[in-house]
Design a protein around this nucleic acid. Structure first.
Lengths: 232, 232
DNA sequence: TCGTGTGAAGTACTTCACAGCC
DNA sequence: GGCTGTGAAGTACTTCACACGA
Protein backbone atom coordinates (compact mmCIF):
# COMPACT_ATOMS: atom_id res chain seq x y z
CA UNK A 1 0.00 0.00 0.00
CA UNK A 2 2.72 2.40 1.00
CA UNK A 3 4.83 3.20 -2.03
CA UNK A 4 7.18 5.17 0.19
CA UNK A 5 8.32 3.38 3.34
CA UNK A 6 7.26 4.95 6.62
CA UNK A 7 10.84 4.56 7.83
CA UNK A 8 12.02 6.68 4.90
CA UNK A 9 9.96 9.62 6.20
CA UNK A 10 11.51 9.35 9.65
CA UNK A 11 14.94 9.37 8.05
CA UNK A 12 14.06 12.40 5.93
CA UNK A 13 13.29 14.29 9.12
CA UNK A 14 16.70 13.30 10.44
CA UNK A 15 18.45 14.42 7.25
CA UNK A 16 16.71 17.76 7.50
CA UNK A 17 17.87 18.21 11.06
CA UNK A 18 21.43 17.42 10.00
CA UNK A 19 21.22 19.94 7.16
CA UNK A 20 20.08 22.65 9.58
CA UNK A 21 23.06 21.85 11.75
CA UNK A 22 25.45 21.97 8.80
CA UNK A 23 24.00 25.33 7.86
CA UNK A 24 24.70 26.77 11.29
CA UNK A 25 28.28 25.58 10.84
CA UNK A 26 28.51 27.31 7.45
CA UNK A 27 29.07 24.02 5.67
CA UNK A 28 27.46 24.45 2.26
CA UNK A 29 28.12 21.13 0.57
CA UNK A 30 27.52 17.54 1.63
CA UNK A 31 27.20 14.06 0.13
CA UNK A 32 25.17 10.92 0.61
CA UNK A 33 28.02 9.31 2.54
CA UNK A 34 28.48 12.35 4.78
CA UNK A 35 24.76 12.48 5.54
CA UNK A 36 24.76 8.72 6.03
CA UNK A 37 27.46 8.84 8.65
CA UNK A 38 25.76 11.66 10.54
CA UNK A 39 22.40 9.94 10.40
CA UNK A 40 23.68 6.47 11.25
CA UNK A 41 22.42 4.80 8.08
CA UNK A 42 23.99 3.63 4.81
CA UNK A 43 24.75 5.96 1.93
CA UNK A 44 22.61 3.75 -0.33
CA UNK A 45 19.73 4.40 1.97
CA UNK A 46 20.19 8.16 1.86
CA UNK A 47 20.23 8.24 -1.93
CA UNK A 48 17.23 5.92 -2.19
CA UNK A 49 15.25 7.96 0.35
CA UNK A 50 15.94 11.19 -1.53
CA UNK A 51 15.18 9.55 -4.88
CA UNK A 52 11.60 8.90 -3.77
CA UNK A 53 11.00 12.63 -4.05
CA UNK A 54 13.28 13.92 -6.78
CA UNK A 55 16.82 14.49 -7.89
CA UNK A 56 18.41 17.02 -5.59
CA UNK A 57 22.13 16.42 -6.11
CA UNK A 58 24.77 16.87 -8.72
CA UNK A 59 26.64 13.82 -9.96
CA UNK A 60 30.26 13.93 -9.00
CA UNK A 61 29.62 16.85 -6.65
CA UNK A 62 27.10 15.88 -4.00
CA UNK A 63 24.40 18.08 -2.52
CA UNK A 64 24.21 21.81 -1.81
CA UNK A 65 23.09 22.18 1.80
CA UNK A 66 20.58 25.07 1.42
CA UNK A 67 19.06 23.54 -1.71
CA UNK A 68 18.60 20.09 -0.24
CA UNK A 69 17.28 21.64 2.96
CA UNK A 70 14.74 23.72 1.03
CA UNK A 71 13.60 20.66 -0.90
CA UNK A 72 13.17 18.53 2.21
CA UNK A 73 11.22 21.31 3.89
CA UNK A 74 8.92 21.38 0.89
CA UNK A 75 8.58 17.60 0.71
CA UNK A 76 7.73 17.31 4.41
CA UNK A 77 5.18 20.12 4.21
CA UNK A 78 7.04 22.37 6.64
CA UNK A 79 6.86 25.47 4.48
CA UNK A 80 3.36 26.18 5.67
CA UNK A 81 1.79 27.14 8.96
CA UNK A 82 0.45 24.39 11.21
CA UNK A 83 -1.95 25.46 13.91
CA UNK A 84 -1.82 23.17 16.90
CA UNK A 85 -3.91 22.68 20.01
CA UNK A 86 -2.72 20.76 23.03
CA UNK A 87 -5.23 18.75 25.03
CA UNK A 88 -3.86 17.99 28.46
CA UNK A 89 -1.75 20.70 30.08
CA UNK A 90 -0.21 18.78 32.95
CA UNK A 91 3.52 18.47 33.36
CA UNK A 92 3.96 16.66 30.04
CA UNK A 93 1.68 18.99 28.08
CA UNK A 94 3.50 22.02 29.46
CA UNK A 95 6.89 20.50 28.69
CA UNK A 96 5.72 20.00 25.10
CA UNK A 97 4.28 23.50 24.83
CA UNK A 98 7.55 25.01 26.03
CA UNK A 99 9.93 22.72 24.19
CA UNK A 100 12.10 24.81 21.87
CA UNK A 101 12.21 24.02 18.18
CA UNK A 102 8.52 23.60 17.43
CA UNK A 103 8.19 27.14 16.16
CA UNK A 104 11.15 26.74 13.77
CA UNK A 105 8.80 25.43 11.13
CA UNK A 106 5.66 27.41 11.67
CA UNK A 107 4.13 25.07 14.18
CA UNK A 108 2.03 27.45 16.22
CA UNK A 109 0.26 26.60 19.45
CA UNK A 110 -3.09 28.33 19.21
CA UNK A 111 -4.99 26.69 22.05
CA UNK A 112 -4.45 24.76 25.26
CA UNK A 113 -7.18 22.64 26.84
CA UNK A 114 -7.60 20.72 30.07
CA UNK A 115 -10.39 19.50 32.34
CA UNK A 116 -8.56 20.36 35.56
CA UNK A 117 -10.22 23.44 37.16
CA UNK A 118 -6.90 24.36 38.75
CA UNK A 119 -5.40 24.79 35.29
CA UNK A 120 -8.29 26.33 33.37
CA UNK A 121 -7.76 30.08 33.22
CA UNK A 122 -4.03 29.84 33.88
CA UNK A 123 -1.51 31.28 31.44
CA UNK A 124 0.90 28.83 29.82
CA UNK A 125 3.32 30.06 27.21
CA UNK A 126 1.22 33.13 26.64
CA UNK A 127 -2.01 31.23 26.14
CA UNK A 128 -4.96 30.92 28.50
CA UNK A 129 -5.84 27.31 29.27
CA UNK A 130 -9.47 26.59 28.36
CA UNK A 131 -11.77 23.79 29.40
CA UNK A 132 -11.74 20.82 27.02
CA UNK A 133 -15.51 21.23 26.59
CA UNK A 134 -14.79 24.45 24.70
CA UNK A 135 -12.66 22.68 22.11
CA UNK A 136 -15.43 22.14 19.60
CA UNK A 137 -16.55 25.74 19.80
CA UNK A 138 -12.97 26.96 19.60
CA UNK A 139 -12.38 25.22 16.28
CA UNK A 140 -15.44 26.92 14.81
CA UNK A 141 -13.74 30.27 15.22
CA UNK A 142 -10.10 29.26 14.76
CA UNK A 143 -8.24 27.17 12.23
CA UNK A 144 -6.75 24.11 13.89
CA UNK A 145 -4.74 21.58 11.90
CA UNK A 146 -3.54 19.15 14.51
CA UNK A 147 -3.99 18.23 18.13
CA UNK A 148 -1.45 16.96 20.62
CA UNK A 149 -2.86 14.56 23.15
CA UNK A 150 -1.15 14.66 26.54
CA UNK A 151 -3.92 13.55 28.89
CA UNK A 152 -3.81 10.58 31.27
CA UNK A 153 -4.30 7.23 29.51
CA UNK A 154 -7.81 6.70 30.87
CA UNK A 155 -9.01 9.90 29.19
CA UNK A 156 -7.08 9.55 25.95
CA UNK A 157 -9.80 7.89 23.87
CA UNK A 158 -12.43 10.48 24.85
CA UNK A 159 -10.05 13.36 24.25
CA UNK A 160 -9.12 11.89 20.87
CA UNK A 161 -12.80 11.72 20.00
CA UNK A 162 -13.16 15.37 21.00
CA UNK A 163 -10.30 16.28 18.68
CA UNK A 164 -11.84 14.25 15.88
CA UNK A 165 -15.20 15.95 16.45
CA UNK A 166 -13.42 19.29 16.36
CA UNK A 167 -12.22 18.41 12.89
CA UNK A 168 -8.46 18.22 13.31
CA UNK A 169 -6.62 16.43 10.55
CA UNK A 170 -4.04 14.76 12.73
CA UNK A 171 -3.40 13.70 16.30
CA UNK A 172 -0.02 13.32 17.95
CA UNK A 173 -0.82 10.94 20.77
CA UNK A 174 1.48 10.90 23.79
CA UNK A 175 -0.72 8.60 25.86
CA UNK A 176 0.13 4.90 26.15
CA UNK A 177 -3.13 3.89 24.50
CA UNK A 178 -4.14 2.71 21.04
CA UNK A 179 -6.56 5.34 19.75
CA UNK A 180 -9.57 3.72 18.09
CA UNK A 181 -11.56 5.45 15.35
CA UNK A 182 -15.25 5.35 16.09
CA UNK A 183 -17.04 2.77 13.97
CA UNK A 184 -20.66 2.63 12.90
CA UNK A 185 -22.09 -0.85 12.59
CA UNK A 186 -25.36 -0.50 10.80
CA UNK A 187 -25.84 -4.10 9.68
CA UNK A 188 -22.97 -4.42 7.26
CA UNK A 189 -19.27 -4.49 7.98
CA UNK A 190 -17.84 -1.94 10.39
CA UNK A 191 -17.52 1.45 8.82
CA UNK A 192 -15.35 4.25 10.11
CA UNK A 193 -17.22 7.27 11.39
CA UNK A 194 -17.02 10.44 9.25
CA UNK A 195 -14.99 12.55 11.64
CA UNK A 196 -12.23 9.90 11.61
CA UNK A 197 -12.03 9.47 7.88
CA UNK A 198 -8.55 10.44 6.73
CA UNK A 199 -7.51 11.47 10.23
CA UNK A 200 -3.87 10.62 10.91
CA UNK A 201 -2.70 9.39 14.30
CA UNK A 202 0.98 9.36 15.19
CA UNK A 203 2.12 7.95 18.53
CA UNK A 204 4.91 9.05 20.86
CA UNK A 205 5.04 6.56 23.70
CA UNK A 206 7.95 6.88 26.05
CA UNK A 207 6.81 4.14 28.43
CA UNK A 208 6.89 1.79 25.45
CA UNK A 209 10.34 3.15 24.63
CA UNK A 210 11.71 2.25 28.03
CA UNK A 211 10.27 -1.26 27.79
CA UNK A 212 11.81 -1.74 24.34
CA UNK A 213 15.10 -0.50 25.74
CA UNK A 214 14.89 -3.07 28.55
CA UNK A 215 14.26 -5.82 26.02
CA UNK A 216 17.16 -4.82 23.79
CA UNK A 217 19.56 -4.52 26.71
CA UNK A 218 18.78 -8.15 27.49
CA UNK A 219 18.81 -9.17 23.81
CA UNK A 220 21.36 -6.91 22.13
CA UNK A 221 21.87 -9.21 19.16
CA UNK A 222 18.29 -8.55 18.08
CA UNK A 223 18.91 -4.82 17.68
CA UNK A 224 19.63 -3.80 14.10
CA UNK A 225 23.19 -2.56 13.66
CA UNK A 226 23.62 0.94 15.17
CA UNK A 227 25.84 2.33 12.43
CA UNK A 228 25.69 0.43 9.13
CA UNK A 229 28.67 0.49 6.84
CA UNK A 230 29.32 2.90 4.06
CA UNK A 231 29.91 1.54 0.60
CA UNK A 232 33.47 0.74 -0.49
CA UNK B 1 20.46 -9.74 11.05
CA UNK B 2 17.40 -9.33 13.19
CA UNK B 3 15.64 -12.64 13.45
CA UNK B 4 12.80 -10.95 15.32
CA UNK B 5 11.47 -7.76 13.70
CA UNK B 6 11.91 -4.59 15.71
CA UNK B 7 8.28 -3.77 15.00
CA UNK B 8 7.26 -7.01 16.66
CA UNK B 9 8.79 -5.86 19.94
CA UNK B 10 6.84 -2.61 19.81
CA UNK B 11 3.67 -4.58 19.27
CA UNK B 12 4.42 -6.93 22.17
CA UNK B 13 4.58 -3.89 24.43
CA UNK B 14 1.17 -2.89 23.13
CA UNK B 15 -0.28 -6.35 23.70
CA UNK B 16 1.04 -6.30 27.25
CA UNK B 17 -0.64 -2.95 27.90
CA UNK B 18 -3.91 -4.34 26.55
CA UNK B 19 -3.63 -7.40 28.78
CA UNK B 20 -3.14 -5.19 31.84
CA UNK B 21 -6.25 -3.30 30.88
CA UNK B 22 -8.24 -6.51 30.39
CA UNK B 23 -7.07 -7.66 33.81
CA UNK B 24 -8.38 -4.51 35.49
CA UNK B 25 -11.70 -5.23 33.78
CA UNK B 26 -11.69 -8.81 35.14
CA UNK B 27 -11.62 -10.25 31.64
CA UNK B 28 -9.65 -13.49 31.94
CA UNK B 29 -9.73 -14.83 28.39
CA UNK B 30 -8.86 -13.32 25.03
CA UNK B 31 -7.93 -14.35 21.50
CA UNK B 32 -5.62 -13.28 18.71
CA UNK B 33 -8.49 -11.52 16.94
CA UNK B 34 -9.58 -9.70 20.11
CA UNK B 35 -6.04 -8.53 20.80
CA UNK B 36 -5.65 -7.62 17.13
CA UNK B 37 -8.69 -5.37 17.19
CA UNK B 38 -7.59 -3.62 20.37
CA UNK B 39 -4.04 -3.18 19.07
CA UNK B 40 -5.03 -2.09 15.57
CA UNK B 41 -3.19 -4.89 13.77
CA UNK B 42 -4.18 -8.16 12.08
CA UNK B 43 -4.82 -11.36 14.00
CA UNK B 44 -2.16 -13.07 11.88
CA UNK B 45 0.30 -10.56 13.12
CA UNK B 46 -0.58 -11.16 16.76
CA UNK B 47 -0.13 -14.92 16.44
CA UNK B 48 3.13 -14.57 14.54
CA UNK B 49 4.53 -12.07 17.05
CA UNK B 50 3.72 -14.36 19.96
CA UNK B 51 5.08 -17.39 18.10
CA UNK B 52 8.53 -15.82 18.02
CA UNK B 53 8.74 -16.45 21.75
CA UNK B 54 6.70 -19.54 22.45
CA UNK B 55 3.28 -21.13 22.46
CA UNK B 56 1.14 -19.34 24.98
CA UNK B 57 -2.38 -20.19 23.89
CA UNK B 58 -4.71 -23.13 23.73
CA UNK B 59 -6.02 -24.22 20.33
CA UNK B 60 -9.71 -23.71 20.06
CA UNK B 61 -9.76 -21.63 23.25
CA UNK B 62 -7.50 -18.60 22.90
CA UNK B 63 -5.29 -17.11 25.58
CA UNK B 64 -5.64 -16.82 29.35
CA UNK B 65 -5.04 -13.16 30.22
CA UNK B 66 -2.86 -13.59 33.34
CA UNK B 67 -0.75 -16.32 31.73
CA UNK B 68 -0.09 -14.41 28.53
CA UNK B 69 0.62 -11.29 30.55
CA UNK B 70 3.13 -13.12 32.72
CA UNK B 71 4.85 -14.56 29.67
CA UNK B 72 5.10 -11.19 27.93
CA UNK B 73 6.49 -9.62 31.10
CA UNK B 74 9.15 -12.32 31.16
CA UNK B 75 9.93 -12.03 27.43
CA UNK B 76 10.32 -8.26 27.65
CA UNK B 77 12.52 -8.49 30.73
CA UNK B 78 10.13 -6.56 32.94
CA UNK B 79 10.22 -9.02 35.84
CA UNK B 80 13.46 -7.52 37.08
CA UNK B 81 14.45 -4.20 38.57
CA UNK B 82 15.81 -1.50 36.24
CA UNK B 83 17.71 1.32 37.87
CA UNK B 84 17.45 4.51 35.88
CA UNK B 85 19.19 7.87 35.99
CA UNK B 86 17.83 10.94 34.23
CA UNK B 87 20.29 13.42 32.77
CA UNK B 88 18.58 16.74 32.19
CA UNK B 89 15.99 17.78 34.76
CA UNK B 90 14.33 20.66 32.95
CA UNK B 91 10.63 20.68 32.20
CA UNK B 92 10.84 17.56 30.04
CA UNK B 93 13.07 15.63 32.43
CA UNK B 94 10.75 16.44 35.33
CA UNK B 95 7.69 15.45 33.32
CA UNK B 96 9.34 12.10 32.62
CA UNK B 97 10.40 11.60 36.23
CA UNK B 98 6.85 12.23 37.41
CA UNK B 99 5.00 10.40 34.67
CA UNK B 100 2.90 7.63 36.23
CA UNK B 101 3.39 4.07 35.05
CA UNK B 102 7.15 3.79 35.05
CA UNK B 103 7.23 2.17 38.47
CA UNK B 104 4.66 -0.48 37.44
CA UNK B 105 7.48 -2.66 36.18
CA UNK B 106 10.29 -2.01 38.60
CA UNK B 107 11.72 0.92 36.73
CA UNK B 108 13.25 2.91 39.56
CA UNK B 109 14.68 6.38 39.27
CA UNK B 110 17.82 6.33 41.35
CA UNK B 111 19.52 9.54 40.29
CA UNK B 112 18.81 12.89 38.64
CA UNK B 113 21.53 14.99 37.03
CA UNK B 114 21.75 18.45 35.53
CA UNK B 115 24.34 21.15 34.90
CA UNK B 116 22.05 24.01 35.83
CA UNK B 117 23.12 25.43 39.24
CA UNK B 118 19.56 26.53 39.88
CA UNK B 119 18.46 22.88 39.77
CA UNK B 120 21.37 21.14 41.46
CA UNK B 121 20.43 20.51 45.08
CA UNK B 122 16.70 20.77 44.44
CA UNK B 123 14.37 17.90 45.30
CA UNK B 124 12.48 16.31 42.41
CA UNK B 125 10.29 13.31 43.05
CA UNK B 126 12.07 12.64 46.30
CA UNK B 127 15.54 12.73 44.78
CA UNK B 128 18.19 15.42 45.08
CA UNK B 129 19.37 16.70 41.71
CA UNK B 130 23.16 16.32 41.36
CA UNK B 131 25.60 17.92 38.99
CA UNK B 132 26.24 15.90 35.84
CA UNK B 133 29.96 15.86 36.68
CA UNK B 134 29.09 13.57 39.58
CA UNK B 135 27.53 10.96 37.29
CA UNK B 136 30.65 8.85 36.88
CA UNK B 137 31.30 8.78 40.60
CA UNK B 138 27.66 8.01 41.32
CA UNK B 139 27.72 4.87 39.19
CA UNK B 140 30.71 3.60 41.11
CA UNK B 141 28.60 3.43 44.23
CA UNK B 142 25.21 2.66 42.75
CA UNK B 143 23.93 0.19 40.19
CA UNK B 144 22.60 1.99 37.14
CA UNK B 145 21.16 0.08 34.20
CA UNK B 146 19.91 2.80 31.90
CA UNK B 147 20.01 6.53 31.41
CA UNK B 148 17.33 8.86 30.09
CA UNK B 149 18.67 11.80 28.15
CA UNK B 150 16.52 14.94 28.36
CA UNK B 151 19.08 17.68 27.86
CA UNK B 152 19.02 20.38 25.15
CA UNK B 153 20.13 19.07 21.73
CA UNK B 154 23.47 20.87 21.81
CA UNK B 155 24.49 18.99 24.96
CA UNK B 156 23.04 15.61 24.02
CA UNK B 157 26.19 14.08 22.55
CA UNK B 158 28.35 15.03 25.52
CA UNK B 159 25.75 13.84 27.99
CA UNK B 160 25.44 10.57 26.09
CA UNK B 161 29.21 10.15 26.30
CA UNK B 162 29.01 10.76 30.05
CA UNK B 163 26.37 8.03 30.34
CA UNK B 164 28.49 5.68 28.26
CA UNK B 165 31.53 6.42 30.42
CA UNK B 166 29.41 5.76 33.48
CA UNK B 167 28.76 2.29 32.11
CA UNK B 168 25.04 2.30 31.50
CA UNK B 169 23.77 -0.45 29.21
CA UNK B 170 21.14 1.61 27.45
CA UNK B 171 20.17 5.18 26.69
CA UNK B 172 16.68 6.48 26.06
CA UNK B 173 17.38 9.62 24.08
CA UNK B 174 14.72 12.34 24.05
CA UNK B 175 16.89 14.91 22.26
CA UNK B 176 16.45 15.53 18.52
CA UNK B 177 19.99 14.38 17.79
CA UNK B 178 21.57 11.22 16.42
CA UNK B 179 23.81 9.91 19.19
CA UNK B 180 27.18 8.82 17.81
CA UNK B 181 29.27 6.14 19.49
CA UNK B 182 32.85 7.31 19.93
CA UNK B 183 35.18 5.71 17.42
CA UNK B 184 38.91 5.10 17.63
CA UNK B 185 40.75 5.33 14.36
CA UNK B 186 44.17 3.93 14.95
CA UNK B 187 45.22 3.24 11.38
CA UNK B 188 42.69 0.59 10.40
CA UNK B 189 38.94 0.93 9.93
CA UNK B 190 36.95 2.84 12.51
CA UNK B 191 36.43 0.86 15.65
CA UNK B 192 33.83 1.57 18.28
CA UNK B 193 35.16 2.69 21.63
CA UNK B 194 34.87 0.17 24.49
CA UNK B 195 32.32 2.05 26.55
CA UNK B 196 29.91 2.02 23.60
CA UNK B 197 30.22 -1.65 22.77
CA UNK B 198 26.84 -3.28 23.18
CA UNK B 199 25.26 -0.06 24.40
CA UNK B 200 21.70 0.28 23.17
CA UNK B 201 20.24 3.63 22.15
CA UNK B 202 16.52 4.09 21.74
CA UNK B 203 15.11 7.42 20.54
CA UNK B 204 11.93 9.24 21.50
CA UNK B 205 11.72 12.33 19.31
CA UNK B 206 8.52 14.29 19.48
CA UNK B 207 9.65 17.08 17.15
CA UNK B 208 10.23 14.38 14.53
CA UNK B 209 6.78 13.04 15.35
CA UNK B 210 5.11 16.36 14.61
CA UNK B 211 6.96 16.64 11.30
CA UNK B 212 5.94 13.12 10.30
CA UNK B 213 2.38 14.00 11.24
CA UNK B 214 2.52 17.08 9.01
CA UNK B 215 3.78 14.99 6.13
CA UNK B 216 1.09 12.33 6.51
CA UNK B 217 -1.68 14.90 6.81
CA UNK B 218 -0.59 16.16 3.39
CA UNK B 219 -0.03 12.66 2.02
CA UNK B 220 -2.60 10.47 3.76
CA UNK B 221 -2.46 7.74 1.13
CA UNK B 222 1.15 6.99 2.15
CA UNK B 223 0.14 6.10 5.70
CA UNK B 224 -0.22 2.35 6.25
CA UNK B 225 -3.81 1.37 6.97
CA UNK B 226 -4.81 2.39 10.51
CA UNK B 227 -6.81 -0.73 11.37
CA UNK B 228 -6.05 -3.74 9.17
CA UNK B 229 -8.70 -6.35 8.65
CA UNK B 230 -9.25 -9.46 10.70
CA UNK B 231 -9.28 -12.78 8.91
CA UNK B 232 -12.56 -14.19 7.62
C1' DT C 1 -15.88 -27.01 15.72
C1' DC C 2 -12.95 -23.46 17.04
C1' DG C 3 -8.78 -20.75 17.33
C1' DT C 4 -3.78 -21.44 17.72
C1' DG C 5 0.69 -22.30 15.67
C1' DT C 6 3.50 -22.41 11.46
C1' DG C 7 5.62 -23.46 6.93
C1' DA C 8 4.90 -21.27 2.46
C1' DA C 9 3.62 -17.48 -0.50
C1' DG C 10 3.51 -12.82 -1.20
C1' DT C 11 4.92 -8.11 -0.51
C1' DA C 12 7.75 -4.41 1.08
C1' DC C 13 12.04 -2.71 2.15
C1' DT C 14 17.01 -2.48 1.77
C1' DT C 15 21.29 -3.34 -0.48
C1' DC C 16 23.77 -3.57 -4.38
C1' DA C 17 26.14 -2.51 -8.77
C1' DC C 18 26.71 0.26 -12.25
C1' DA C 19 25.12 3.58 -15.78
C1' DG C 20 25.04 8.42 -16.27
C1' DC C 21 26.50 13.01 -15.70
C1' DC C 22 29.22 16.65 -13.56
C1' DG D 1 37.57 10.78 -11.24
C1' DG D 2 33.79 11.12 -8.32
C1' DC D 3 29.23 10.84 -6.62
C1' DT D 4 24.44 10.67 -7.80
C1' DG D 5 20.36 8.23 -9.37
C1' DT D 6 18.16 3.77 -10.23
C1' DG D 7 16.76 -0.85 -12.02
C1' DA D 8 17.79 -5.44 -10.26
C1' DA D 9 18.97 -8.66 -6.64
C1' DG D 10 18.63 -9.87 -2.10
C1' DT D 11 16.62 -9.88 2.43
C1' DA D 12 13.21 -9.06 5.88
C1' DC D 13 8.65 -8.69 7.10
C1' DT D 14 3.78 -9.68 6.68
C1' DT D 15 -0.05 -12.31 5.08
C1' DC D 16 -1.97 -16.43 4.15
C1' DA D 17 -3.91 -21.19 4.43
C1' DC D 18 -4.24 -25.05 6.69
C1' DA D 19 -2.71 -28.71 9.95
C1' DC D 20 -3.27 -29.60 14.65
C1' DG D 21 -4.94 -30.05 19.24
C1' DA D 22 -8.57 -28.95 22.77
Amino acid sequence: MAEIPTAAISRLVTYLRILEQLETQDISRTSSSDLAERAGVSAFQVRKDLAYFGRFGTRGMGYTVPILKRELVRVLGLNQTWNVVIVGVGRLGQAIANYPGASDYQFQYVGLFDVNPALVGQQVRGLTVRHTDELRDFTRHNTVDMGFLAVPPEHAQDAAQALADAGVKGILNFAPVVIQPRTLERGGPQEISDEWRGLIVENIDFLAGMKRLAFYILNPHLKDAPTPEDPA
